[in-house]
Design a protein around this nucleic acid. Structure first.
Lengths: 120, 120
DNA sequence: CGGCTCGTACGATAACTCTCGTAGTACGGA
DNA sequence: TCCGTACTACGAGAGTTATCGTACGAGCCG
């Protein structure tokens, strides 16, 4: 056990501060179909937290870990440990403050594309 | 000279049809700083066409060609030959029809980030 | 024709990404 | 204490990307 993680539940994960979030990074994070779908699912209830295993993704667990990390490091989601689970939530407040209307436009565009092409 | 390019000015370039444009592709195209800047410059006047050399980009000519092709193949811009120059224009009509409000939100977000961080 | 400008094509390289499997750690409960 | 669940870390492979340099083609103008 690492010294920094001694106190129970203190395993913190590195997140960019609000001011460090870059538009290019957000767009890159959302340009992958798996990650776009994760964000769409998270956005159904922005105040709720979902564990990684809540999502039914067409990739293995280690790939899932990778995608969640990309989302976290780009500032799109916030991840916190809760016992053995890792809970995920959209950083809607930060994103809306930085880029008003962007997240809504992106989610609307994604929904529109799904209804146009089927559940792709 | 290829047979298809015999008639002067007829060198056509492959563009995706409106229905073929994918949100993920658009986001990926815009997740590169060089390309985001091109689109921002094009959006100043969406009805105008600009030659590739109009832009002052921090990369070589061949890299510039690469970035314009990515933008064209993702459906963000339309390219047409005019004499020795290749003119570029935003496909605002197609994008607005597919994803209403998205392009405006993206441009506003980019402008906001520039004014926050300086001309990066 | 000869040269100039604009842009392309091709090849190369280094870096990054997506994916996986295996092995391992952290936590909660029996 | 031992086991199961949830997730991570590491390493590897295949594919994509961003960048460049050089060489070339297409059109314009003297």
């Amino acid at each position: 056990m690492t010294p920094a993680a001694t106190a129970a539940g203190t395993r913190d994960l590195p997140h960019p501060a609000r001011e460090e979030i870059r538009l290019e990074g957000v767009l890159h994070a959302l340009s992958d179909p798996v990650r776009l779908r994760i964000v769409r699912d998270l956005a159904v209830d922005s105040d709720e937290l979902f564990s990684c295993s809540y999502f039914d993704l067409p990739v293995t667990k280690s790939t899932t870990t990778h995608h969640f990390r990309v989302l976290r490091e780009s500032g799109v989601i916030r991840q916190t440990y809760r016992g053995t689970a890792k809970m995920n939530g959209l950083r809607r407040g930060d994103l809306d403050a930085l880029f008003p209307g962007l997240l809504d436009a992106l989610l609307a565009a994604a929904a529109r594309q799904v209804s146009r092409l089927g559940t792709g």
